[in-house]
Every structure is written in structure tokens, then in C-alpha cells.
Design a protein around this nucleic acid. Sequence first.
DNA 1: GTTTTGTGGTCAAACGTTTGCCCAACCCTT
DNA 2: AAGGGTTGGGCAAACGTTTGACCACAAAAC
Lengths: 337, 337
Amino acid sequence: MKKKRVSITDIAKALNVTPSTVSRALNGGGKVSEKKKQQIQALAKELGYRPNPIARSLVENKTQTIGLIIPEFTHHFYSRVLAGIESVTSKVGYQLLICTSNEKKRQEIKSFQTLLDARVDGILATICKKNDEFGHLQEVLESGTPLVLMDRICEEIETSYVISDDFEGAFQAVDFLLQTGCTQIIHIKGPKVLSTSFNRFMGYKEALRKHQIPYNKELIFEGNDPELPDKIRAYIKANPVDGIFAYSDYLAFEAVNVLRNEGISIPDQVAIVGYADEPISTYVTPQLTSVNQRPFDMGSIAAGFLLNQIQAPNSPLEFKSLKTELVTRSSTKKTTS
Amino acid sequence: MKKKRVSITDIAKALNVTPSTVSRALNGGGKVSEKKKQQIQALAKELGYRPNPIARSLVENKTQTIGLIIPEFTHHFYSRVLAGIESVTSKVGYQLLICTSNEKKRQEIKSFQTLLDARVDGILATICKKNDEFGHLQEVLESGTPLVLMDRICEEIETSYVISDDFEGAFQAVDFLLQTGCTQIIHIKGPKVLSTSFNRFMGYKEALRKHQIPYNKELIFEGNDPELPDKIRAYIKANPVDGIFAYSDYLAFEAVNVLRNEGISIPDQVAIVGYADEPISTYVTPQLTSVNQRPFDMGSIAAGFLLNQIQAPNSPLEFKSLKTELVTRSSTKKTTS
DNA sequence: GTTTTGTGGTCAAACGTTTGCCCAACCCTT
DNA sequence: AAGGGTTGGGCAAACGTTTGACCACAAAAC
């Protein structure tokens, strides 16, 4: 059975003063003699008094809690985002209430409702992939609860957000491959529904354009094709290829396996770049060059935006497109410069 | 600015009844005519009334919130544990307040304090590696807040817990290697401070004993040795080895790399088993046989234990040692049976 | 016609804080 | 001695609920 904690009134009774005096003595609200203040603080400490945030929330109409909704826990990217968020919220004494949508719209809606019901002071969210209707986000805004979106945005709703610059990330990767001398670069695309797939594809094309390499659509493969390995194998056997830029590290690994089976050396004959910089990248052979999206920073920046909005409710929205960072390892050659 | 939400008194005033009547109408506390009940419920719905859990918490002295402390977010194992927990708590309408210790004792203590201050109804925790003193856990118990430990336990304190059967997991792995014909099996050990290292080592020895293979301490390597690859390489060149059981998947990968560089075929010449069944295991070549610790189940079972204790505070403690599951892939041979 | 039983509802306390307002006592000016 | 300012502290409302105690009224039982 939960033990009763000592309250401000317990202290008040013991010292024969009123709760208000105790409250003021403890919170420095002035209007209390130095002597009584000492006395009260001493007793509070002795009794192990800890203020009850529930009661405080009720009167102050804020909870010192922020809500988080992510599509999945089991994903390195979101784990890092979460770590980034926690790193800032814990410093300023905010609690984190967390929900998952499991990439399901219904659960997402429910999670928003849950957080709103819980009266969180603000919400951080990554909405799920398939999201065509945004009434639930609109409701959050109308409730006056600050909202910051991460990673995936929705243009219909005006919120602060932090995203990763996929175009730039892909550009960096392909630009680097080109600089190391590659010219025939395969791109393995991501899921069609995601704007990230499109943006990375555009970054790929832009890099080619910069180096005046003609775009060859035969070099483009669909990542979610179960026959992907076979198709790549077939293409490589028949055509010159010296580089691969994959939408994700996992797709890059698939390519690595194909190359290895064919006895093609990495990076001498074909260089490979993945995306996301998953921790495994350093454990596989060869170690995989990859684009780091700085998910930790995404989380911490988003949390910062949210705290700003909580503290100054009418401040302007904030937006950030995070620059990526190419981490070069042994799956690519050194740049010739 | 946060908009004021409609309260039970708003409804009461609008309908010219008292808040108590509204409360009873909404919560089915009897004592209210069918007609008024309909009326009240209709208006509540129309106004979008949502009960204020803060106020409710204050009077009921419970928060419908459980606290979670884990050493790290960025770890597949804990992500899965978290997912398991969430899967059960979300079903029964409990919120999740989450903290991390970053494997630091100071932060762990602070997190417990935070959760206790927040008046959570119960706490799920994995304590950090270096933990010699448990006053903070004792405090939790004394506060009457139910506590369930996961993955790592502490014998000094009487709590419910869910752990993974490391002995059995290692035994399964090594037993399997032996069944597939291996006899000279290297074991790469984990960090000395962790009981899991010890238990897996004991499981390894037990499996040898079962198959009447003499224990050879030259086959034991320390995982956190920076020269591990070199030492393994040297040993393998000079001695017969046909199997490797590693403390973790990552250590297994290191071994894989050594073998590959030496041109030793996996699994024909040397078979390898890792531990934890990280998702990468299926993406590397060869796909890695590994011991799955069922972290999702660990989370969901622990959450179940905790909910039981919350609902029946004087029920006996519960303990579970989770059976592991060997997932065989191409880094090991087929069993000869 | 009086007592019981039941129904539908109000009142008020309680949960633990915070905070605006009031008041008494003291000290300092004139 | 009267007025004014300061200091220390109490009172009570408020936040949004829940819940035990009570009460009025009507219908049923004696």
C-alpha cells in the first residue's frame, strides 16, 4: 500500500502556522521571517518533504510534462531521437510521457488524445507514414498545446518542425562517390510513399548534374523488390558499374552481399554508400560509408523548439532542416584531392 | 496559450445540477435518474468534455502512470523491452513516464527520485551495471511503490523481477554447436562486471560437460581486449578450432571478420554463434546464428507483474527467468540428427 | 394515518498546492 | 499623538474531481 507522503499542511500543523506560510517559506515567496523560514525548511528536510506535483499542476494548469509520439521504438533512428529529447528535457526538469503509433493512424490519433487528456504542456511527434488527413493535429493546435513535428512533416498544418535534409544527404553521398572517381553509380531507391525516397533520389540526380554525368535510369533499382539482389547481379555482370548509393544501410548490405558473391572487390571495383549510419556499419566488412542523419540532434533541437513555445506561447514557429554528415569508411575509396 | 477545457462544474452549471450529480452520471455511480443521466452525457459529449486526470489523481491518490528507468535508449535490447512494456500498459490505460540512467549511478538515483516525486503507481527498472549500494531501491520499497526489476537483479533487495536465463541460453548455443559436430569451441567472454558474462560462461562449460568434452581454458578469450582479433587469429592458426560462441553478436562479427580474412569458411570449417539476435544478424554474410533473449516478452511480463502488484498490493512477489530461443542461421551447420 | 423503504439529488469535505487579500503589530515620521 | 509605511502571517478561494453523509419526497407497507 502506498505510504502517505508528508504534505505542506503536515508541516504547517507541526509548526503551528498555516499552509500558505509553509508554501512561501519553501518557494521563497517572501513575507516570512528568516527565523520561521529556517525552521520550516529544516523540518521539511527532516521529514523528507517533497512537493506534490499533482496538486501543483492542478492550480498552475501545467504539468511539467511533455508528450512524445513516435512510430516505433525498435528502430535505431528513433532511439537516438528519443535520447536527444531526453537529454534536454531532463536538464530542465520536464517529464517525458511516451506513446507509440506503431505506424498506425488509429493508434496515432489515440495517442494524441491520450496526451491531450493528460494535459501535457507540449507534444513532440513523428507522424506515421500513411497520413492523408490531419484533423487530429488540427485539434492539438486548437487546444493550444504546442506541437513540434520531427522527421516527417505535413504541409497542411502550421507547426514548428525539425527534419533531415535528405536531398543534401544524398547529394553529399553521390558527390563523394563521384569525387573518388566513380561514374557509373547505381541508386537503390526507398519506399515510394515516403518523401525521403524522392528527396534522396533528387539529391542523387543533382550530384550527377554537378559532375556532368548523364542520368541513366537503368541504374535505378527499387529497394523493396524481393528480386533486388538478382537484378543487381544481372545488371552488374552485363554493364560497367563502379559505385552504389543505397537508400538505407540495410539495402547497402544486400548489395554488399551480391558483390561479395560475385567476387567483386569493395571499394576498388565498386564503392558503396548507405544511409542512416546504423551502428552495424562499423561491424560489417568492409565498414560501410554512410550518411548520418544526426537523429540525436534532431531530438534535442525539436525539444528545444518545444520548450521555447511552452515558455513563450506566442513566439513564432521555428523550423530546422538538419544538415547530414557523410561518414566515410572502407566501403568507399579515398577522395583523390 | 492553453485553452481552458470544459469541466464537470461547467456542465453542472449549464444543467443546473451539482458537480456531484454530473460526476455520478458520467461514472455510473448510480443515484441519478435515467433522464438526467442522458441529458448530462449528451451535453458532455457535445462540449467535448474529457475528465481531468490531474484532479482525479489528487483525490484518488493514484496516477495511472508507471515509471520506467533503463540504462540506455540506444540499444536494440532495451527498445524491444520498451515496446513490450508499452504493448501491455497502453492496453490497460496506463501512461508511461520514462527516464534513463545512461548507466550512471547518480542519474539512476535521480531518476528514481523523479518518478517517486511524480507519484507514479509503480516502477519498472533495469539498474545500471555498477551497482554496489541499493539504498535508493530500498527507499522505493519503503515508499510502498511497487517495483519490478528487469534483466539485472540485485539480491539484497526483495522485488519481483524478470531476467533472461543466460546460463540456459549459452547452454543451448554451445550444445547446438556440439550437436553439429564441433568439439573445439572458442568462447569470447563479456565484461567481467556483469553477471550475464559469468552465467553464459557457465552455460558454455555445462554444455561441454554434457558432451564430455574437456574444458580447455586456452579457448577462452576476453571480449573487451582491443587485441582480440589478433589473438584469435594467432590461436586459430596454431590450433584446431571448429566453433565459436561469442558473448554478443558484435563480438561474433569481429570473429567473423578474422575468419574471413584468413580464408576460413563459415560454417564448414568454423561455426559461429552470437548472442542477443540483433536485427543485423540477418543482414550480414553469413547470416548469424544467435540466441534470442525475447526482450519484448521480458518487457510485457514485467509490466504484467507490476500491474498485478499495483492492483493487489499485498500479493506475493513474482519472478521469471525467461527461456531463450536459439535462432539458427547460416553461420552454423545443420544438426546431424 | 403513521412508519418504512426507496429514489434522486444536494452539500460539503477532501486531495495538496498557490496566491490575492486582509489584518495586526511594530517602527518611523511628523 | 496621529498618521503612514513596513513586515509577518493568516484566511480563504481556487484548481477539478470523488464520495460519504444527509435530505426531501413519494410510494409502499403496516
